[in-house]
Design a binder for these strands. Structure first.
Length: 630
RNA sequence: GGGGCCGUAGCUCAAUUGGUUAGAGUACCGGACUGUCGAUCCGGUGGUUGCGGGUUCGACUCCCGUCGGCCUCGCCA
């Protein structure tokens, strides 16, 4: 009689003292085995829910014990046995909470080997870190590791909570097309050639933006969808070419309504999964404040080190004194500073740390980072080290402007406001890490609002949309569209947590006159607007309700819930930085016949490369046969 | 496209200034062992130092190129 693996009674994470005496059927993988010779064998059996210790005793179950001795790691087995209390042998890990089943063990009477395993290419263990490339190539093994699997249980739980929340709030989940139309603005599209219309291409959606606005015009009122999005841009630690958004849109709402819904969702998810209570309503900060105080539109508000303007204090500096500052001011630039207080650990800033910071700033395109320490007395502060000697005459003014006192250290960046913001916001975060100013296990969320409606693109000499061209200006700023477009603020809002954008959205334009004016400013002609966005513009003519929405990066939410900085840890089969899937080797070449059917030809360069690759591989095959022939 | 870090046994890593036969832990194989729990103990197998070229009496080490991975700037409305 064999063990009925299709009638498991429990998972491997489930058995407790209360089950003692029961006969159970478990199935899973051999996590490790401890063979004690003549009498006893222990196996830790693993499934996705946990580990259970199996005990084989040769005196009571000689046949099962004999089989147990043939087991190796990762064999897939099913067992039937009796739950025993471990008595005074309760696992230490039961007491630490690492092994909730550690109070019991299963004395196995019957075992079936369902499937043997080759020696895995790396150990399936939370104790061994293997290089990620190999892990991704054998992701199905990597996913067996409890720590790795945990991320996907959390992801699934978060998805369920979010769906429940939006269903309760009256949202409909409706699917939108993946094969859709390429949009000219924004990220690069992934293209899909059409066989039926050779020479034409679908695009995979960067987001369902246009469709969800059409839902509002259709009267669906509240729409929310967990949806895959695609962007063909360079990858990052938190960016994959395909990722998941919770995309939502609401009609008859103002910005406050959308923000209220989303922050309610955030608080619910954080509370249910982490037991962490986020206080609502979330604070709000204007974009202008965020840029001025933090140099960044996604400020990390868990620590201070805010940016301080010292342009006024240094406005009289001459090129002889310090050319870098004088030249920046002469060119119309500004100078800002970060003051690291003595109480924040300024004395920990060794030369090694400040030099490392300077090098890192150079690495992102800056000229370095000027720094000096404040010494002397509160009444008569003096600068020491670094650039101190060069800016000594301005010491009193700078200390007054920044609140710097003896024992503090100052870091300066001169130049165009955007550059100053970039380098000092970078320095701010790095300093906070170096000084341990970021509290662990803490979440600081806020809304950033009042973004500019338009940016000026210096290279292309035109206005561009920081959000998208359907974003509604603030009502009170609409007159400025005619007079001072860069001053116009938009009804856009970003949810920021711990210095990372977690969601972004806006109230949309539903008035034709405003939309035309915005297109005009963006240099999009009437004809062009119709070619690109005809379906939306058409729809806006048929009684479009006021509407707005938001999308949040579900992968990023999951990253924060799991506590990882890599998006690859929350995607089952992620791609490497070159957008390759190590498991499937996608993307791959396809047969020429397949391309012909689509009316696609490869460039001469690609064809030559392909031919060369084919020749060298056929030579290798020849070598291989030759070798075996010998 | 730019900057940085990395590539040595199946896996994680070491190898002094360029110097003898490239080591350790783990995994794997064999043996021992009555309560282990990342078991322990004894023994063993295992290497094109990513790849190609150069310098040198001699290269894991230095130089050039190339492939791959990670971080990052640009990019990502």
């Amino acid at each position: 009689m064999s063990v009925p693996y299709n009638q498991r009674t429990h998972s491997c994470g489930e058995l407790r003292a209360e089950h003692v005496g029961q006969t159970v059927v478990l199935a899973g993988w051999v996590n490790n085995y401890r063979d004690h010779g003549d009498n006893l064998v222990f196996i830790d059996l693993r499934d996705r829910e946990g580990l259970t210790q199996l005990r084989f005793n040769v005196d009571t179950d000689p046949e099962a014990t004999k089989r147990a001795r043939t087991l190796r790691n990762e064999y897939c087995i099913a067992v039937r046995g009796e739950v025993l209390h471990r008595g005074d042998q309760v696992s230490k890990k039961f007491h630490t909470g690492e092994m909730p089943t550690g109070e019991i063990e299963v004395s196995v009477h019957e075992i079936d080997v369902l499937s043997q395993s080759e020696t895995p290419p790396f150990e399936i263990s939370d104790f061994v870190d293997t290089n990620e490339d190999l892990r991704l190539k054998y992701r199905f093994l990597d996913l067996r590791r409890p720590k790795v699997a945990r991320a996907f249980r959390i992801r699934a739980q978060a998805a369920r909570l979010i769906r429940e929340y939006f269903a309760e709030q009256g949202f409909l989940e409706i699917e939108t097309p993946f094969l859709t139309k390429s949009t000219p603005e924004g990220a690069r599209d992934y293209l899909v050639p059409s066989r039926v219309q050779p020479g034409s291409f679908y695009a995979l959606p960067q987001s369902p933006q246009l469709f969800k606005q059409l839902f509002m015009i259709a009267g669906f009122d509240r729409y929310a969808q967990l949806v895959r999005c695609f962007r063909d841009e360079d990858l990052r630690g938190n960016r994959q070419p395909e990722f998941t958004q919770l995309d939502l849109e609401m009609a008859f709402v103002k910005a406050d309504d959308v923000m209220g819904i989303v922050e309610g969702c955030l608080a619910r998810v954080w509370s249910e999964i982490l037991g962490y209570e986020i206080k609502l309503p979330l604070p709000r900060m204007t974009y202008a404040d965020a840029m001025s105080r933090f140099g960044c539109d996604a400020p990390d508000t868990r620590f201070g080190l805010e940016l301080q303007d010292v342009t006024e204090s240094l406005k009289a500096i001459t090129a002889d004194e310090f050319g870098v500052f004088a030249n920046a001011l002469a060119a119309g630039g500004i100078i800002k500073a970060i003051c690291v207080k003595k109480s924040e650990g300024a004395e920990k800033l060794t030369r090694k740390i400040t030099d490392g910071l300077t090098e890192a700033i150079k690495g992102i395109g800056g000229g370095g980072l000027a720094t000096t320490k404040v010494q002397g007395t509160a009444d008569a502060p003096e600068f020491a080290t670094g650039i101190g000697a060069r800016i000594q005459p301005y010491c009193a003014a700078i200390c007054k402007a920044t609140g710097a006192e003896p024992g503090d250290q100052l870091f300066f960046a001169p130049g165009k406001p955007a550059d100053v913001a970039k380098y000092l916001s970078f320095a701010r975060i790095r300093l906070a890490h170096e000084l341990g100013l970021i509290p662990a296990g803490h979440f600081e969320a806020l809304w950033v609002v009042d973004f500019p409606l338009l940016d000026w693109d210096e290279e292309e000499k035109r206005y561009v949309s920081p959000h998208h061209p359907f974003t509604m200006p603030l009502e009170e700023d609409i007159p400025l569209l005619a007079t001072d477009p860069l001053k116009v603020r938009s009804q856009a809002y970003d949810l920021v947590m711990n210095g990372e954008e977690m969601a972004g959205g806006s109230i949309r334009i539903h008035r034709g006159d405003v939309q035309r004016r915005v297109f005009e400013l963006l240099g999009i002609s009437e004809a062009e607007a119709h070619a690109k966005f005809e379906h939306l513009l058409n729809a806006l003519r048929f009684g479009a309700p006021p509407h707005g929405g938001i999308a949040f990066g579900f992968d990023r939410w999951t990253m924060r819930l799991v506590g990882t900085d890599s998006i690859r840890d929350v995607i089952a089969f992620p791609k490497t930085q070159r957008a390759v899937c190590p498991l499937t080797d996608a993307p791959s070449e396809v047969a020429i016949a397949q391309l012909n059917e689509l009316g696609i030809d490869l460039s001469a360069e690609l064809k030559a490369k392909r031919k060369a690759a084919e020749e060298s591989s056929s030579m290798n095959v020849g070598d291989h046969i030759h070798k075996h022939g010998q």
